[in-house]
Computed example of a mutant assay.
Amino acid sequence: MKPIIFLLTLLSVTAVARDIHVGVGKDAPTIAIAIKAAQPGDVIHLEPRVYRDYAGFYSKKGEPGKPVTLDGHGAILEGSDPIDATKWTEVSPGLFKNDELLPRLDDAVLGRWFFLWDGKMNHMGRTSKGRSAALKKAEELEAGEWTFVKDPSQEKPPSKQIYGTFYLKLAPGQKLADANIHAPVRSAGVQFGGDNAHLVIKNLTATHPYNDGFNIHGDCRDVVFENIAAIECGDDGISAHESAQYRVDGFVSIGNSTGITDTGTAQTSYRNVFLAKNLGFDLFFLDEGRYELMNVLVLSSAQNPLTITGRDKGDCRMKMENVLIRRLTEPRMGSIALRAFLEAKNCTFEGMDVKVTGSATWDNCLVNGKPQPDGSAGGGARKTELMKLAPPSFTP
């Protein structure tokens, strides 16, 4: 059965919930076809293997009590592919170039870029939301390094697209085909856009996209993520934008530029979370969002352990309960910035201080070995009603 016939067959029968299997047989649907075909109550099943693919939800809706479910069953969505050595030119011994690695490139993508070099991420000392080293000149590269050299003559403002050449430097005598180098060619593991509702995404790992593991844009309602992981992504492990609303129960974020970054007017709730080895920020919450964290362990080595800020839009609110941040390196300062409010209960910030220029309330909390007085701190703390996501987030 051809995929298009499979799609039409599914769309013609909507009364009974279906199990849709991706990756079983040569005529099985792709992830994209399965998501497009799924109707309220349907469950899309992946196999517990690596897919060099992503899951895109674009204005996809289930119904209340009948969500569209994507069950990864332990699947990995791999954002990188092996480079094609035939498309690289050796310009000097061990130095290879490619002018057309991606169809489109801009500074945001370049700031997130890395190569996987024999299975290890190589950022060249760069990260998307933190201090980054300047790109090297091609002639300065040492074995195992890469760079990008811009060609401004091809740029066409106001377009943000940039042009230029990627370079790779190998050890003397090493062949590019034997170097085991991968490039991140997909932007995300799970991508949302448009108006989505009544969805469940579970048992799934995203790794090695050049942007986010879970990139949630647009407006979404009644969306649940369960038992998910983001490993070594170019930007955020998970990130909510615009007016997205979702709940996460079970999330691991390791080796990303940031562990979690939520912004806009998003309303998000996370419980049962583990973060480690992130680069720019561990926890980064911004703007007018309403956010909750419960049962969270952060082994913090990113440049910034915790930042909550309203920026210029104001009234950013965070509720934390049973959160432990163990700071492993300098600097040892978290920030509750102006126009931000934190309500913390049973939290421990170990090996770090928290600078409060916004507002915070503490209930049985320990900061850098010092019990915090119950009540308010910072600039005029006040009681505020945080958002409520169904089911309520802090129900025992």
Rank of each mutant, 00 (worst) to 15 (best):
R49K: 12
T147V: 02
E63S: 11
A17D: 06
D151R: 11
G334L: 04
F57N: 05
G237T: 01
M387N: 14
K156P: 10
P152Q: 12
C233K: 13
P373Y: 14
T89Y: 13
L8R: 14
N368W: 07
T307G: 05
D118L: 07
P48L: 05
F96C: 02
C347D: 06
P82F: 06
F96E: 00
P64V: 03
T265F: 12
I216R: 03
D235Q: 13
D249F: 05
M124K: 13
Y163K: 09
P305K: 01
M318A: 10
N196V: 09
E242T: 04
M294R: 08
G193M: 15
K26Q: 15
L293S: 00
C365V: 08
S335R: 09
F349E: 03
S376E: 11
K61A: 13
V190Y: 09
G264I: 01
L46E: 01
A171K: 07
I181L: 04
S335Y: 09
K129A: 11
G264F: 00
P371C: 09
H123T: 10
A171I: 03
V24L: 13
E139H: 12
R382C: 14
D353K: 13
R126H: 02
A171R: 06
Y167N: 13
L70F: 03
P64M: 10
C316M: 03
L299H: 11
D353G: 14
N256W: 01
L170E: 06
K319G: 03
A15S: 15
D363P: 05
G334E: 01
T361E: 04
D19A: 10
Q267W: 03
A197W: 06
S59D: 10
R49Q: 06
K313Y: 12
K120G: 13
